[in-house]
């Protein structure tokens, strides 16, 4: 039987401290890969980002890039969370940057096709039985700077566009970035004509999947859409505040089960 004495407690405490410091440092590195708030505000003056990782480092990630003709926005959700999720999120951001700069793709669907190839190759995924199915889900939008047309493609993740309290859902394909159950099929490209005042929401499943409330149940998508619909008429700063409050209220004393990201953009 192991003897727990002051010395071993001290040692454990030290190890934990080192681990936390190390993770904290990793978190700075991860943060540096995400676009700065100032950049987000510069590109989308009326927007908010509700980003709440479950652990010090996050499996969720977000990425924005403005080009002369279009603006690219992505929200990703890696398999798992914590350190493994963070590694995948770094791969996700790196590959996203690589694909967009190397191929100059015309649609987000093409980006997702390439992303999947890169990830499968990096993780040696070949579809064999018992192979790790690591990867990530993602929503990717191309917003035309002039026409304000939005192109969207998603790996599992949808986006919502709310206009006059009416929710337009653009659904993602039911396949991940990474190896899926079936042979790879091309991702679908969706187009939507935006109007001034429309709210675009990109998000991961952390919010609707959060357990809480009086019966300890999942928040679910219907109330989530209702919440966003109610928020859509508010100023983005207020939206962020309301979303956060609602999350804390619902979660109560329950533990956070996954990373949470919601990105709202007003047109």
């Amino acid at each position: 039987m192991a003897i727990i004495n002051d010395e071993s407690i001290e040692k454990l405490y030290k190890q934990q401290q080192e681990l936390e410091q190390s993770l904290q440092y990793a978190s700075y590195i991860q943060q540096s890969l995400f676009p700065k708030n100032s950049l987000i505000k510069h590109i989308f003056p009326e927007s908010f980002l509700f980003f709440k990782p479950k652990d010090i480092v996050s499996g969720d990630f977000y990425w924005i890039n403005r080009e002369s003709e279009k603006t690219i926005v992505a929200i990703g959700d890696s398999t798992g969370h914590g350190v493994p999720g963070a590694f995948l999120s770094i791969l996700g951001i790196s590959f996203l940057q690589l694909v967009i700069s190397r191929y100059n793709p015309k649609s987000p669907a093409i980006v997702l096709n390439y992303l999947r190839e890169y990830l499968m190759k990096a993780l040696n995924q070949t579809g064999k039985e018992f192979e790790q199915k690591d990867g990530f889900d993602i929503s990717l939008c191309f917003i035309d700077n002039k026409s304000k047309n939005i192109q969207f493609s998603g790996a599992f993740n949808p986006i919502y566009i709310i206009r006059d309290r009416e929710v337009n859902q653009l659904l993602g394909d039911k396949m991940p970035i990474g190896i899926g159950a079936d042979f790879e099929e091309p991702f679908t490209n969706h187009e939507f004509k935006l109007k001034k005042g429309d709210m675009i929401y990109l998000f991961t499943d952390g919010y609707p999947d959060q357990f809480g409330g009086p019966e300890g149940k999942k928040y679910k998508y219907k109330p989530f859409r209702k919440l966003l619909t109610e928020c859509s008429i508010l100023r983005t700063e207020e939206q962020e505040k309301k979303i956060k409050e609602e999350f804390d209220r619902w979660k109560g004393d329950s533990p956070q089960i996954d990373d949470v990201t919601i990105f709202g953009i007003r047109q």
């Binding site: 390439y114 190839e117 890169y118 190759k121 993780l123 995924q125 070949t126 190896i179």
Partner: peptide
């Protein structure tokens, strides 16, 4: 053509 699942970049 290849009839295999593998990442090709």
């Amino acid at each position: 053509i290849l009839l295999q699942r593998i990442g090709i970049t």
